[in-house]
Design a protein around this nucleic acid. Structure first.
Lengths: 118, 118
DNA sequence: TTGATATATTCTCATAGTAGAATATATTCA
DNA sequence: TGAATATATTCTACTATGAGAATATATCAA
């Protein structure tokens, strides 16, 4: 099998940095037409359209036709699954001091064992 | 250009579901040798070794040789960047109820004003 | 040493991404 | 209708993935 398609889920879609840039832009500025995104990010229009397509297929963006423009809007709920997964690990880095101490103690025990077995 | 290698950063490394399974396993059980991971996930050993290699290269895991075993340990700090990126959007879904309520109240006030001025 | 165990590496194959250039489609305007 | 604008789609080329099978490497045990 090859790598999972980028349209498989939010994890895959968001792995591409330009797509995160698009998400950030829409979060800051609200819904934008393709042309505005192209201008803001200084990327070729086809590139932007393709990235928008991926994000939309995954559900992170929605589109609304407005005349000849297409206005893309962020649907952040779609990112919640990723957030929830990462939130499990929040304690690990907020309690970092404890862990550093614990690791130091482990290393010490190991060193003691090494000497003992030498 | 092709898709960025999975070893580019945590975003790319973690897009693969089996790699998330490995991370979850190590988070629950603490450091484990390859064999234990293979047994727990019921995956072929080479598959596991390769996924471990990716996670290690990105810094999400560290290895420690213990006899003929290699014990992998979670280094969750490496996930913090992803978490921080997603945390920006937390308000969008946690305050959703508040926003709906607020909007409803505003509408009510407006309705009241309309009546009053009628 | 010899064999067994634990893990990593290599090779092949099928799949698919991304950029870039070119082109197609749809909509508005004169 | 015809031109201009906004956006999407297609095509090519290169790269890399991930599974699976086979093999290599390292360590332990008898």
């Amino acid at each position: 099998m090859a790598r999972a398609p980028t349209t498989t889920d939010a994890f895959n879609a968001v792995a591409e940095p330009r797509r995160r840039a698009i998400i950030d832009l829409l979060a800051r500025n609200g819904p934008l037409a393709v042309g505005a995104i192209v201008a803001a990010l200084s990327l070729p229009q086809p590139t932007v359209s393709k990235h928008l397509g991926v994000l939309r297929e995954v559900g992170i963006l929605s589109v609304e036709r407005l005349g000849q423009q297409r206005v893309y809007r962020l649907q952040p709920e779609e990112l919640k699954t990723m957030f929830d997964w990462l939130k499990q690990y929040e304690q690990f880095w907020t309690h970092q001091l404890d862990r550093i101490k614990e690791r130091a103690e482990r290393k010490q025990r190991e060193a003691a064992n090494t000497k003992r077995n030498a």
